[in-house]
Structure formats: C-alpha cells, structure tokens
Design a protein around this nucleic acid. Sequence first.
RNA 1: CGGGGUGUAGCGCAGUUGGUAGCGCACCGCGUUUGGGACGCGGGGGCCCGCGGUUCGAGUCCGCGCACCCCGACCA
Length: 478
Amino acid sequence: MADEKLTSRSENYSEWYNQVVLRADMADYAPVRGCMVVKPYGWALWENMQKELDRRFKETGHVNAAFPLLIPKSFFEKEKEHVEGFAPELAVVTIGGGQELEEPLVVRPTSETVIGYMYSKWIKSYRDLPVLINQWANVVRWEMRTRLFLRTLEFYWQEGHTAHSSDEEAQEETIRMLDVYADFAINEAAVPVIRGIKSESEKFAGAVNTYSIEAMMGDTKALQAGTSHNLGQNFAKAFDIKYLDQNNTLQYCWTTSWGLSTRFIGAIIMTHGDDNGLILPPRLAPFQIVIVPIYKNDEERSAVMEAVDNVQKQLKDFRVKLDDRTEVTPGYKYHEWELRGVPLRLEIGPKDVEKGSVMAARRDIPGKPGKSFLLQENLAPQVQELLDTIQAAMLKRATEFRDANIHPANSYDELKEIIQNGWAESWWCGSSECERKIKEETKATTRCIPLDQEKGGHGKCVYCQSDASQKVYFSKAY
RNA sequence: CGGGGUGUAGCGCAGUUGGUAGCGCACCGCGUUUGGGACGCGGGGGCCCGCGGUUCGAGUCCGCGCACCCCGACCA
C-alpha cells in the first residue's frame, strides 16, 4: 500500500491530496464517475465526527429522523430560487419496476422540499413549534468536476431542518447551529474556522441568509466547511407550512436548515496534513495510538509482548491499534502509520522492557524532536496529556498558519497580489457587481462577511471605492 | 461542456521497422531479518478498454466509441 514517497505539497498540492486519501486507505474510486467508496478507515473518522456532532445536536434539543431518498420532481418547482439553484445538478429517476413513471422522482440533493411537505402536514398550532429535526443521510448532486471527499456526486452529511414561530427564533437557531459547527471544528477537529455570512451570490438557493464556517487549507485556498441557512418564510410559503398562533391567526412558519458533510474530512486532511501524509486530530482519529513492538528473537519477543500486553491493558480507554505484523519491519510501520495520520506512536522494544519505558513519537512533530520516553507505570495519564498537547498544538499551528496568510487589502492591486497566496480582508460595498468583477478578473470569490468584526466601521470598497460598512474575505476556494 | 492526458498483471510502467507480452512493487511458499521504508531463493497471476478496418499476422497502424484522471466554467 504505502511503498513509495508521497508527492510533496509544494510540488503538486492536489496530487498530494489524492495520494494521501488513497494511500491512507480513507477512500477509493467507485465504478461510476465522481463517486467514491468510503473505506473503513475513512468511515471510522466520519463516525467519530458524527458522534461529536450528534451529541451537540441532541444537547441543543434536536432529534433525528429519516426522510425518503426519492422526491417528486414537482417539489423542486415550488420554490423559485431553489429550482434554479438545483435543477442543473439533479439526478432523476424516470423508470421504476420497468415502467415509465407518471412523475419523475429526484434523488435528493438536499431535503428542504420533502421535509417542508411533511412539516405542512404535521404543524397545525404554535404548540407544535418549534420542530427541531436532523437527519443523517446521503445526497446526490450531479457535479461537473469531482474530487475525493471535497466534491463527489454522492456524499454523506447531516441536514438539520427546523420550523419556528418567529423570525427572531429562526435567526437564533441559525446562529446557534453555526456556533455548534464552529465549536466542533475548532475543539474536535482542530480546524480553526471563521464564522460569517455569505454574500447574495454565494448563499443557498432559496435562503434569506446563509452563514458558513470557512477554513483555510494548506495551500491557502478556502473551504466552506459547514453552512447554516435562515430560510425565512420562503419554504413555508412554497410548502404551505402554517400554524395557528395564540390569537387564532394563521401564520407561516419560519424555517432553517443547516448541514455539514463528508467534505469536512477533506478539510481535516488539508488543514493538518504534511509531506509525510495525514495528521489526524487525537479527538477524532480512528486510532489515537499505534503500538509497534520491536524484537530480534523469540526470547525478546515474549518479553516485549508481555510489556505490550500490559500497556494495552492500561490504555483500554483509548483507541489503540497494535501493529503486530511480522512480515514488515518497524521502519515500514512507522512510515505507514505516519502516512495514515495516527497522532501518537508507542514503540516498545527490549530497551523499554529493561527500563520499564516506552518510546512515544508525536505525529505532529516529525523525527527526533517529537520523540520522548514515557514510563510504563501509570501510563494512561501520561498518554492523555500527550494527546491533549498534540490536539492543542495542531489547533495552534493551523491558527497561526491561517492568520499569517490573511492580509488586509487596501487597494485592488493589493488584493490581486494577496489572493495569489492567501486571503484578502477588505472593505466591500456589498454590490454583487463588484463581487462578480473581482471573481472574473482574479478567480477570487467572497468567502464570508465575518461576524466578528467591529460594528460601525467604514471604509472604501476595494473595487469601486464607494463607501463600505463591512469587511469581507476574498480568496480562491475549493 | 471546452482544453490536456491516460487506458497492457492488484498498483506503477516498458513494449523497437507489425512476428504472438515483459520489468519493478504488491501477492503466495521457504529461510534469514526486525529501534526509521530488509534480503535470498522459488512461485502464481494477462480477452493488452471496446467495436470495426488494414494485414499472412495487430498491444503496436487507421477509424469510431467508451471510461477515467488533470486544468477551466458550475457547486457543499
């Protein structure tokens, strides 16, 4: 599997990315163009992500359900912007059981429509609100160009869909879930993200407002890592989601939707990976620790394996992989597990048996500087501390990298220069026209208008020089 | 959908003027190895992407398809 040197990131970043995904055994290409198989190692990472997200959803009052894969095509015509946004990338089923269907069925690209339909049946009274449902699902979007995890025809995600009795409550929910995503990204994945609001042209088809968390990848391009939409009453009106309020007046609901997908795996890979391969954050890594036993003969073997056994017992509350293969050498194993991003490696050999130690090697600090001896005695707390240190160091490094590559652009010339290798932070008048021109001329798009900027500021639009009251990030993006 | 590239063993590739397919890695067996990608010996594995041509003979030459990858436009 892992036999030759990886293409370096500076040599060819996308080649590096593809090789890492394939050789780390995260995923493989499927027989259909643009589709992927998520292999057990990749799926284990996704499961850990799901667990952390799901916990947060439940803590904020949401419940899970499952809605159907097939949606009547006519549903997509009910909300004007939604149909315009999604029509080009729908997969449509026209034959079922050998018969031409009376109405074609769309394989869901997202579930606002069918969930809206169901909500209209379920919601009658203000007492039914809010409805706070999430589903874990796969969706299909017929994309032109695909890349493993980042953009595949089919992908896995969660989509939350909520209905509320007021605009304020829907807006609170939208921000609440954006914050959940940011908390997950920063504290579980060690991916520093910026919370912001999307421009008109970048927002979700059919939303009033779209918020996103934006992350910077290792090549300084931006990746939208999660989104939260305030749908206002657009879908409620399209799908007739109404309730009677306390005054017996019929009202349309206010709805939201929010999603985070397997794309985020791509964010983790490109935020942390180095020229030796993946570096996975300890809190999400399928294996937090890999143990490599080392011995020369049977005598050493039995002594070493006894120590390994003892270590394994002490670390039973961690996700541990014992690599006891005899057909490959320790050196081979080091390279392989580094490629696969295991945060901490424990080497146990004759010297350790003698000294009651284990050699610990940090994945985030390659080579000698990342190595240290731990005592076999009372090992668990030492390992926990190391993993915490690694997690924190990863977040710190990624944050510093991001901040070092965001620069204020005071002029259009500066912006053009900055976006060659970073994000430009600049004043923007808010007009789609300036945005479009910049995109045409530089390939950079607005990523988001960051929520964390001082209110009441003002400057001149980086493109048209007219008055601007907000700052925005421009960059190339995935 | 435009531009570029590639289809030969699981993977990466070679294959001369057209003569009936090979190398490295991986895999299997045996032995020696094992603290940063070990080695020796012996094995198994092929509708050369598909369909038509040309030819005594096609992996090779000529059409026409198809698929995948990369770069753009579109998008989470």
